[in-house]
Simulated scan of single mutants.
Amino acid sequence: MSHLLPATGGAYLDQDAYIADFNRRFWRTDAEGFWKLERMQSYDEGDFPSWLALRDGDWSESLRLIEELRPEYEEYYAKIAAAGFALHRVRVVERPIIPYVQWELNILSVKYEYGERVSVLDAMEVAGEETEDPLPELCVLGTEAVYVLDYYSRSEPNGAVLHTDPATVTRARTLVQRLYAAGEGLGGYFAREVAGLAAPRGL
């Protein structure tokens, strides 16, 4: 992605420093909004209860625990709307849909109901962007910052590289916005491609 991000520069933040910096900047995101690009097909979600239920092979419990989060999500997205910005996410999906992505799309479907703007893009549609490497995992906070997320080989979070150069932030945000526009809104996608899937057999 040399056309998008500089080969050098930026500030590496370990996972704790990344979380602290992200939390410090997030609530001052401007009207350009928050833009996230998810390309990997699996992440380690730590001690998140619904994720642990999925790992244990209990799909019905995993879904029940997602439903329990509705009041939390309703409050969170109302707070974001009151702050004057919106969350946008591009979720790249490879086929066949693997258990992790099926699980995540169920969570995103609930978040979508409360205001997160989720666009789904088939992996084949980004092949032209990936002539050398897969698309990076990006979080863009308005006009202020972009984080290029890093992961260990087992999809465990490993911090991020922070860029605040305005031109770099603009290029990253423009990329995610373009991919978002090319994708399909989660509502229709979920009903057609995900809602009818059988329970996954675990990870």
Score class of each variant (00 low, 15 high):
173 R>T: 09
6 P>L: 02
170 T>Q: 11
195 A>P: 08
4 L>Q: 06
121 L>W: 01
66 I>E: 00
134 P>D: 13
162 L>F: 05
170 T>R: 15
10 G>R: 11
127 A>N: 07
164 T>M: 05
116 E>M: 10
25 R>P: 04
6 P>Q: 12
44 D>V: 15
86 A>T: 08
106 N>I: 09
73 Y>R: 14
19 I>W: 03
69 L>T: 07
132 E>D: 14
1 M>A: 08
26 F>E: 09
62 S>C: 14
75 E>C: 05
98 I>T: 12
64 R>Q: 14
79 K>C: 09
108 L>Q: 09
48 F>E: 14
51 W>E: 02
19 I>E: 06
46 G>T: 02
140 V>L: 00
177 Q>E: 04
177 Q>L: 07
17 A>K: 06
188 G>N: 15
105 L>W: 05
70 R>T: 03
116 E>Q: 03
50 S>H: 02
194 V>K: 14
7 A>H: 04
120 V>Q: 11
69 L>H: 01
7 A>I: 03
198 A>C: 09
41 Q>I: 04
185 G>K: 15
30 D>L: 13
1 M>R: 04
55 R>L: 15
22 F>P: 08
83 A>H: 09
81 A>G: 11
179 L>R: 05
158 N>D: 14
109 S>V: 07
93 V>H: 05
41 Q>E: 09
1 M>E: 10
122 D>K: 01
44 D>S: 14
109 S>P: 00
91 R>T: 10
182 A>K: 02
147 Y>M: 05
178 R>V: 03
55 R>M: 13
126 V>L: 02
126 V>T: 00
159 G>H: 10
62 S>W: 04
1 M>V: 08
169 V>K: 04
56 D>H: 06
196 G>M: 14
50 S>T: 01
84 G>M: 08
190 F>G: 14
134 P>R: 11
38 E>F: 00
124 M>C: 11
89 R>G: 00
190 F>I: 15
54 L>Q: 05
36 K>G: 02
122 D>M: 05
43 Y>Q: 02
98 I>N: 13
76 Y>G: 12
160 A>Q: 11
199 A>S: 11
72 E>R: 15
170 T>H: 11
34 F>S: 05
127 A>W: 11
107 I>S: 00
187 G>M: 08
174 T>N: 13
200 P>C: 07
60 S>T: 02
27 W>F: 12
154 R>C: 15
108 L>N: 03
157 P>S: 15
119 S>D: 06
87 L>R: 06
120 V>P: 03
155 S>G: 13
117 R>M: 01
181 A>H: 08
56 D>G: 07
193 E>R: 10
151 Y>S: 01
2 S>A: 02
20 A>C: 09
88 H>S: 04
182 A>D: 07
174 T>K: 04
125 E>A: 07
167 A>L: 12
130 E>H: 12
98 I>D: 07
147 Y>Q: 13
166 P>T: 13
47 D>K: 13
199 A>F: 12
192 R>P: 08
47 D>L: 09
129 E>R: 13
156 E>W: 13
18 Y>T: 12
186 L>G: 02
18 Y>S: 09
195 A>K: 15
173 R>C: 00
141 L>T: 00
68 E>L: 13
162 L>A: 04
